[in-house]
Nucleic acid binder design. Structure first.
Length: 358
DNA sequence: AATACGGGGAT
DNA sequence: ATCCCAGTATT
């Protein structure tokens, strides 16, 4: 494809969008840089339906970029809790503060300056510039990868660098001269609602005449799926200590690794490690622990088998007081903390809503 | 180039 | 049970 005037990809896609696209998505009204940015971050590896309530709630708490910058980490994490990929929230918060320090409280209208902000890569930077300002930048998210792999008949897993490079090139080649904001939204909407992974609506497709995969009967095998591998398994002992008031001892996880900086239960790899932690922080008999039923949880990269150990009416050692990283928390306070979903599940299983208080 | 990072939905 | 999703950062 060397002559832009013979490439009807963008114009057909825009025509489809005008007629059948979703025009009621919340980040479209109004389509401001801050709202576009927030939506793009929340939508990374996360479906529209999941994002919707978080997007609305987040904006109620932090209506503007400077509001977000001024908030505390705990306030931000509380609004993100449950969405997953928590580095996104920490990066979003850090980036907001950088924007206040370096860009007058606004997102910069500059590709390199955007990519320099934490949490914004090539695709998100392009998405922000195109949707907020109409600037001419390509995006390459999962939807665009799928659409282009089919349209051009590109084989190979799109996560492979060579394939991804080719897809970026194709994405750049289709860029229209106008309506970049709508075009960018249209590509993602098209992939999410029509050119779906399973059962795409090829009969209704605006691009069916030029789609290589459809012509060659390869729609169901493109894009090539990721080579699979068995999930490794890990076991964790979850220490559930309750004091005489029925409060639960929570600790703040380290700033790096899984569930970084979120509140969770003390955790150990084995009983020796658990006993050691218990002795250092609590008074009582470790062996009085009640072993509760295993709670399995599957992450994208490993399977976690949580084994809760419960003690009641415990006291902390005198040297251990409430501090920034270790707290007794009443059950009513749990929802306001940024607890990871599996921990919430564990707690709700172990501590029914009607137990503990008269 | 490979891995870490969550949670929810679809098949 | 397995795969996938409006990706980015780290190693």
């Amino acid at each position: 494809m060397n002559a832009a005037e013979h490439d009807h990809f963008a114009e057909k896609l825009l025509a489809w969008f005008d007629a059948a696209g979703r025009h009621d998505l919340p980040w479209l009204h109004p389509r401001t840089p801050y709202r576009v940015w927030l939506s793009e971050i929340m939508l990374q590896q996360t479906q529209v339906k999941t994002v919707m309530p978080y997007f609305a709630r987040f904006l109620e708490h932090f209506p503007t970029l400077p509001d977000l910058a001024a908030a505390s980490t705990d306030q931000v994490m509380a609004q993100w809790a449950g969405l997953g990929y928590y580095a996104r929230a920490r990066n979003l918060h850090a980036a907001a503060r950088l924007c206040v320090q370096q860009h007058g409280g606004d997102l910069p209208r500059d590709f390199d300056a955007l990519v320099a902000l934490p949490g914004i890569g090539r695709s998100t930077a392009g998405a922000i510039l195109a949707q907020a300002w109409g600037d001419r930048f390509a995006i390459l998210d999962g939807n665009v990868k799928r659409v282009l792999a089919r349209y051009h008949g590109v084989a190979g897993w799109p996560g492979a660098p060579a394939v991804e490079k080719q897809l970026w090139q194709l994405a750049a080649q289709h860029l229209p001269q106008a309506r970049m904001a709508d075009y960018t939204q249209a590509q993602m909407d098209f992939g999410a609602t029509l050119c779906t992974r399973h059962d795409p609506a090829c009969m209704l497709c605006a691009l069916q005449d030029d789609c290589v995969a459809l012509r060659e009967g390869r729609v169901d095998e493109l894009p090539t799926s990721k080579p699979g591998k068995p999930l490794p398994e890990r076991i964790a002992l979850m220490l559930l200590a309750e004091n005489a008031h029925g409060e639960v001892l929570l600790l703040r996880r380290p700033p790096v690794g899984i569930w970084a900086s979120l509140w969770s239960l003390p955790q150990a790899d084995d009983h020796e490690q658990a006993r050691q932690w218990f002795a250092a922080h609590l008074q009582g008999d470790y062996d009085q622990a009640e072993a509760l039923a295993e709670i399995p949880h599957v992450f994208s990269h490993y399977r976690l088998r949580m084994h809760p150990l419960r003690w009641r009416a415990l006291a902390a050692r005198d040297a251990v007081r409430d501090n920034d990283d270790l707290r007794w928390v009443a059950r009513e306070q749990l929802p306001s903390l940024g607890l990871p979903a599996p921990i919430r599940k564990l707690l709700s299983t172990v501590i029914p809503a009607n137990a503990g208080t008269p």
